[in-house]
């Protein structure tokens, strides 16, 4: 019977066609391009304001990005499967408050974080079930859960508020502390990011997320458990939103019923700016993380340069549209490059 040995032994020396190299380069370039824009922006700001890159300055920059990076990482997984989770802001808010309430009563910080993550997992599962079982688009389903979770949050929290004074000192110190300029929170986010990226690249179920985003019908025919994978992506996204809630609490110490309101749009922007394509199947979590870093640092750069922060939103919007335009142009160029190299019957 056919035996295509899965040993790496007979590596037929297939020359890397130019088209492939080009495509590789373009995809890597996407991440490089964001990094470049980011570095240029930082350099310009530093030139205009030498205080910007002080130890505290760097720390603030990283702290601000951490939470967005975390949520964007989770969101990427969902977007890769050609879905979206708009409820992350609500999930973040309610888990932050839940963890805070527990800590207020003198709870253990580790348990508080676990609680936030579990709550996130719960909402993630809910989203995942609704999306994978119902024949309703994810956009509509998660818009619904966005309001539902926010509604529950408002009823439960009312006008109450948690402040840093209510929390154990160790927890708050952890939130703002770090190893010289690198906050602990950023290290956690980095660990999650690297683990997720590794999983997506090296594990079968990770690749299957890309496959089912790329062509859902083909994924079904390839025997991929489509519903299970979508459920898993949402659950993971929810878990990270929950974890981000706990971090939010540690960092700001201040949580009320409005926490995380509208956050989902920032998250989605970060993901798209980072090159995770909205129609599924391509992009990387590193890209999304860079997108998050870029968007949050604009928030710090403008004030440092003495520009009014009212410009922040407009600039975010411009970046978003720019990113989509670049994607489109690159896609067209790559397509024509591939087509020109199709002649294989030499």
């Amino acid at each position: 019977m056919t035996v295509i040995s899965p040993n790496p032994a007979p590596v037929a020396d297939v020359p890397k066609a130019g088209a492939t190299r080009l495509v590789d380069r373009v995809f890597k370039m996407r991440e490089l391009a964001i990094l470049l824009v980011f570095l240029v922006m930082i350099a310009v700001t530093q030139a205009g304001n030498s205080e910007f890159l002080s130890e505290q300055g760097i720390k603030d920059l990283l702290l601000n990005a951490t939470i967005l990076v975390l949520v964007a990482t989770g969101q990427s997984l969902v977007v890769i499967t050609r879905n979206v989770d708009l409820s992350v802001g609500s999930t973040l808010g309610i888990s932050a408050f839940a963890a805070g309430t527990y800590l207020q009563g003198g709870g253990n910080p580790v348990v508080a974080i676990a609680l936030a993550v579990l709550l996130g997992i719960g909402f993630g599962l809910l989203n995942g079930l609704l999306v994978s079982l119902g024949q309703v688009p994810a956009l509509v389903v998660t818009l619904g859960t966005l309001y539902i979770i926010r509604g529950i949050d408002s009823i439960w929290v009312g006008s109450r508020q948690i402040t840093a004074a209510d929390l154990p000192a160790g927890f708050v110190d952890f939130g703002s502390g770090g190893i010289s300029a690198v906050p602990y929170l950023a290290l956690i986010a980095l660990a999650v990011l690297v683990a997720t990226a590794y999983y997506l690249k090296h594990f079968g179920s990770g690749r299957e997320l890309y496959a089912l985003g790329s062509n859902p019908e083909a994924a079904r025919l390839a025997g991929i458990p489509v519903r299970k994978r979508i459920l898993a992506a949402y659950t993971f996204c929810g878990a990270l939103a929950g974890l981000a809630g706990a971090m939010y609490l540690a960092r700001f110490g201040n949580v009320d019923s409005g926490t995380g309101n509208g956050y989902e749009l920032t998250v989605v922007s970060a993901v798209v700016v980072g090159g995770v394509v909205f129609t599924g199947g391509s992009g990387s979590v590193y890209g999304a993380a860079l997108g998050a870093l870029l968007l949050t640092s604009i928030n710090s750069v403008l004030p440092a340069l003495g520009v009014s922060s009212v410009w922040v939103l407009a600039i975010n919007g411009i970046l978003l549209i720019l990113a989509i335009a670049v994607d489109r142009i690159v896609a067209l160029r790559v397509a024509s490059a591939l087509k020109k190299r199709n002649a294989r019957h030499a």
């Binding site: 040995s5 790496p8 032994a9 590596v11 297939v14 020359p15 066609a17 492939t20 030499a346």
Partner: peptide, 21 residues
């Protein structure tokens, strides 16, 4: 191994398609 097996398949079918494309 995935790459090598693909290259072997392509050889068996007598086509020059880059497995990484």
């Amino acid at each position: 191994a995935v790459h090598a097996a693909t290259a072997a398949l392509m050889q068996r079918l007598g086509v020059e398609l880059d497995p990484d494309r």
